[in-house]
Amino acid sequence: MKLEAQAVTKRYGAHAALDGAAFATGGEARVIALLGPSGGGKSTLLRVLGCLLVPDAGQVSLDDRLLPHDEDGALAERRGNGFVFQGYNLFPHLTALQNITLPLKEVHGMTETQATQRALELLHRLGLEGHEHKRPSQLSGGQQQRAAIARALAPKPRLLLLDEPTSALDPVMTGEVLDVIRELAEAGQSIILATHEISFARKVADWVVFLAAGKVQESSSAAEFFTKPKTEMARRYLEGLSKYR
């Protein structure tokens, strides 16, 4: 995909989470990693790119098409995307299966049978066989996150957006979830991923957007970013994160 952001600003009260962020992916980037220190604007940018948030100023274009700023347009755009969040955000009153089938039926107009078939196919593919009828509280963190990924993938999204999908997980569960994301990336899914897992980003990403203080500090191909970062800030960030790994 071709993604371009121009002077994107998003404020929460006096605090500007994004302060004129701008970048453009060169040509075809399929897996884009948003990296940078906490509070730097990764999550906010991810939400703007996925139309979950409308920026106060600036614009984003995806494959040379401007993203809408009105609520109805943003809703239609969101329906073509899949989201996975740090805190899983499954609906606690529904089973894993219902979490997936409900949006398929109500948003994407599938019948009960079609939706169930699609949901089961994904749950089994992501290793959740036997857990279909459990509520989120009966699943482990890693299982919940895989169910959340299944929910995001179910309507076959153009774009899968993941916001620090492993930050709440222990190392074993992190591994489970990263395996799933890697398989998706290798299968050709377009992905935007905000993460602190830089060794993972190095393996799967082909473009990196590095953010700090609400601004894009660096936007380059993954190969270039990880071998010779252009800014001092990015260099120090990479050093700091790889110190104990």
Binding site: G50, L75, R79, F83, F85, F91, L102, P103, E106, A152
Partner: peptide
């Protein structure tokens, strides 16, 4: 708020968010 965001993320509109979430 994370539940409301999840509802928006799966593409629910205002009425659907009330009804299902």
């Amino acid at each position: 708020a994370s539940q409301l965001e999840a509802a928006r993320a799966v593409g629910f509109g205002r009425v659907q968010t009330y009804r299902f979430v």
